[in-house]
Amino acid sequence: MSDPSGEHGDPAVAFESAKLGVWTFLATEVLLFGALFTAYTVFRIRYPEMFRVEHAKLDRVLGAANTVVLITSSLMVVLGVDAIKRGKARLLEAYFGATILLAGVFLCVKYAEYAAKFHHGIYPRTNLFFSIYFMLTGLHGIHVLLGMGVLSYVIILSRRGRLSASYYTPAEMSGLYWHFVDLVWIYLFPLLYLVG
């Protein structure tokens, strides 16, 4: 993640730089997941039957619940950024704390799903569908974990009184990243759980 600190004389330039940096970073992230989505497409076309049968083994209820959890967390981030823009640092910390909590819930549900799969003897090596499933959700899970770290860092900054209505770049940038992580899941959920 970019680290927009006040190294440039002009705060406006610093903000613009940070924003461009994060967007560029997100572009690389799109390509990172893009490669896996390409593999998904290739194998889906080649083995439609396998995808139809195997995707039914995923737990749609848990998947849907997790979708709700992540969308709610994105909402919390939006509220948090809005709070700091109005100078309310404590409120930001509360909202971002809630986001981290929701992210934790997401990961716990994910853990439960993985555990259930392993219990039934389903592993990444089982077949191509589950190879893709574990690679995609695993990579996404790592991003959630990183996101939790970034959001915690923003909370620490805020506790130290570094954020205010006139300087809230880290909050806004981490928010952008979090929306991206959320968005990836919005694609993952239907592609893996729903489309047969």
């Binding site: 390509l31 490669a35 896996l36 396998m50 990444p124 090596r125 574990f134």
Partner: peptide
């Protein structure tokens, strides 16, 4: 910025093939 992540994933998949037995590139697994 645009091309490198793809090779990053490719090498991750290669590693995953060796560690977890993921079969994206393995003809015996389809």
């Amino acid at each position: 910025v645009i091309a490198t992540p793809v090779v990053g994933v490719t090498f991750l998949l290669l590693a995953a093939e060796r560690i977890f037995g993921v079969g994206f590139f393995d003809p015996t697994k389809g």
